[in-house]
Simulated scan of single mutants.
Amino acid sequence: MNKDNKNIVSIEDRIPKLKEARKKKANRRLVFYMTIFFFLISIIVYLQSPLSEVKTITVHNNSFITDEEITELSGLLDKPNIWAIDFADIESKLKDNPVIEEVDVERKLPNTVAITVEEKEIIGIIEDGTNYLPVLHTGEVLDSVEYQSFTGEAPLLIGFTDEEFLKKMADELYQLPPDILDLISEVYWKPEEGNQNNILLFMNDGFVVKGTIMDFAEGMAVYPSVVSQLDPNTKGIIHIGVGVYFESFESDADIEEEEEIEESLE
């Protein structure tokens, strides 16, 4: 009898604890559901508010097409909802530009879109009246893309009125290492009766280069080593034809030659 009484007391002692445990469990469940509810409400409010609109557009890896042009072509200036962006549509629009080869569009929360482009290999710019047109490594002139000014991203190709020689020159420039190509400011086609391949180059470091279109890339490979042995204050002509040698503009004859070069380019 005493044993049974003890058991009854023990169960009764447990009942309040069980009730308290159940209450805590119910409260935790209520808090969990309320958190989910408010989280879903927050998402709905965010999607319907200006907070989800595209606020920032970043453009990467472009040289010839400006950030403004790419942004305008993308259609993102209308500030669409960042979750409603059609990436395939944007990429298709940007690829319509003949300079752009590949496009990658990424969503970066909370309201930024990053556009990374890969441009076609442009190795020169050719003057067309008051505008400037990019030239691909194939020699193709992109007459659908016009620049109002020459900004120096690629050499300016002057006097190439013959498509065949323009293509040859473009191919030779394409073979140059980027660090040498970046040194070239202007390339003039100066055909002569005995040699239609004559060219004259003005370099960004102040030197002038005389050579021919044939095997031009091979001849220019030695340009950095030649320049490194010259006094930077002594300007002149580096010949890269049959042999490589340097002529300074110090003598009267050389000064006359320099003046003749300048006159021939006017």
Rank of each mutant, 00 (worst) to 15 (best):
E118Y: 13
I8C: 00
I126H: 13
Y132F: 11
G236Q: 07
L201P: 05
L76K: 03
V244W: 07
V145M: 11
E257T: 14
V242D: 13
E259S: 15
E218M: 11
E172N: 10
M214C: 14
V145A: 05
R28Y: 13
P224D: 00
L76F: 03
K23F: 00
E256A: 13
V141D: 06
E101N: 11
N97C: 06
Y223R: 08
D4N: 00
M1W: 09
F87M: 04
Q196Y: 15
N204W: 00
T58W: 06
I8H: 06
M34D: 10
V145H: 06
I41S: 00
T151F: 07
F246L: 11
D67T: 00
P134N: 01
V209E: 04
H60E: 08
I125T: 04
R29Q: 13
P191F: 14
I126N: 09
E127W: 15
F216V: 10
N111L: 01
I261N: 12
L200Y: 14
R29M: 12
V208I: 08
K23S: 05
I123C: 08
P191W: 14
N97L: 02
E53S: 07
L73F: 09
I261Y: 11
F160W: 14
I125M: 09
K23H: 05
D231Q: 01
I122A: 04
F165S: 12
I261Q: 09
P98E: 03
E127P: 03
D231L: 00
